[in-house]
Amino acid sequence: MAFGLYLHIPYCLAKCRYCDFYSRRASRGVPEEYVAALERAIAGFYARESLPPPNTVYFGGGTPSLLSPAQAARLLAAAAPAPGAEVTLEANPETVNEKKLEGFLRAGVNRLSLGVQTARNESLLRLGRPHTAAQSRAALAAAKAAGFANISGDIMLALPHYSQAEFRETLELLQQGGAAHISAYLLKLEPGTAFGRTPPEGLPTDDQAAEFYLAAVERLEQAGYAQYEISNFARPGFEGRHNLIYWNCGDYLGLGPAAHSCLGGRRFYFPSSTGAFLAGTAAPVPDGGCGAEDFIILQLRLTTGLSLPALKEKYNMEFTQKQLQFVEKCVSAGYARFNGHTLRLTPAGLIIQNSILCGLLG
């Protein structure tokens, strides 16, 4: 079974208006004391939990590209990933250049996840993104020149005043930039964010957002990016291995403030306090376990779907007659496919996955 390590880098140049991830503003990169705190946490957990070398390492944030290549190398030396491990670093376009990316590649990073979001500057400005479309193009070109073969691009759908033309321009930017993987997310107004407090004008309706999503799935498929999860699309062989550990209910360790973990079915997380993490006083908070419902929820995010024999084998759970009848209703409505063994949601079903789960598990 694959094991993944997530390292949270909570520093950002600015807070985007839609973002509800834990982060702190920083203008001079990642403090050395934070890197040292992560090194101590890695060593401590590896010793206590007798963890194997991770098959994936993921630098998430925040803005992990504020790390220096030397800092990334230190953290990877501490992590000691297994041979052939996927090592992903999230990056903002305005924080990287060819020289820095060459340094990350030498440090052991072999997958770059670039936060492009959109190819239109007016949308980037509205989102509070600190980069331009030209900087996204330059960052993609720099990544290719530096030697990255595995490049992912994050984009957002259904933005204020969104159009199919904006999506086409964004997809073209990523295709020309050599992206082998695309994560496409619908804009959500999260409580506590700037957009949550003051929603922007020009937001699509829920039905319009669904239309943008379904059109994006179709267009990405035509462009050679096969959907393998609700929001993730890849050319063959470039699926994100780290997130697949999450969705397949594998073991992963998350280190840093607000980072979550699941080891041996036991969930826990660190408090959202950089100060406490730096001081070494941030004790992990228990968060229950990973059971049959978690497995169902996560497997139905994937286009491979939920295997009922696997559900029986792992958790000794079988669908009731009522649940099977609900599945048949979903199939009749075009939201799912079911062959008696595997339940898969269609794109139309994936976009209303929460509603389907309520009907299936409620």
Rank of each mutant, 00 (worst) to 15 (best):
A283H: 13
E33T: 09
G62L: 12
E201N: 09
K99H: 08
P31N: 05
L5T: 07
L75K: 10
G115Q: 14
S163C: 06
H242P: 01
P284F: 13
G29I: 11
E218M: 04
R235P: 00
T303M: 11
L67A: 06
F238S: 08
E169T: 01
G4A: 14
A336G: 04
D294M: 10
A149K: 13
L127A: 12
P10S: 14
P53S: 12
V285D: 12
N92D: 14
R17W: 09
A14P: 01
A78S: 14
A194T: 13
W247C: 12
A36T: 04
A77V: 04
L114H: 10
L298N: 15
G349H: 02
F338K: 05
L171I: 03
G264D: 02
L5Q: 05
G275A: 09
G264Y: 02
D207Q: 11
I245R: 06
G84N: 07
Y213W: 09
A47Y: 00
L159A: 04
V331L: 02
Y225P: 08
L244R: 15
Q353Y: 03
A179H: 01
A165R: 15
A184V: 03
K312D: 06
A209M: 04
F167M: 05
L75N: 09
L300H: 07
L159F: 03
E313R: 15
Y46R: 14
I151W: 08
A179D: 00
A77L: 11
E190D: 06
V327N: 02
N248R: 15
P271D: 03
A223G: 08
R17A: 14
E86H: 05
G84C: 12
I356M: 01
P83V: 10
P52K: 08
N243I: 11
R28D: 02
P191K: 06
M317V: 15
G147P: 02
E211S: 13
T304N: 13
R129I: 07
K100R: 14
A234K: 06
G128S: 11
H131T: 12
G115F: 10
D294Q: 10
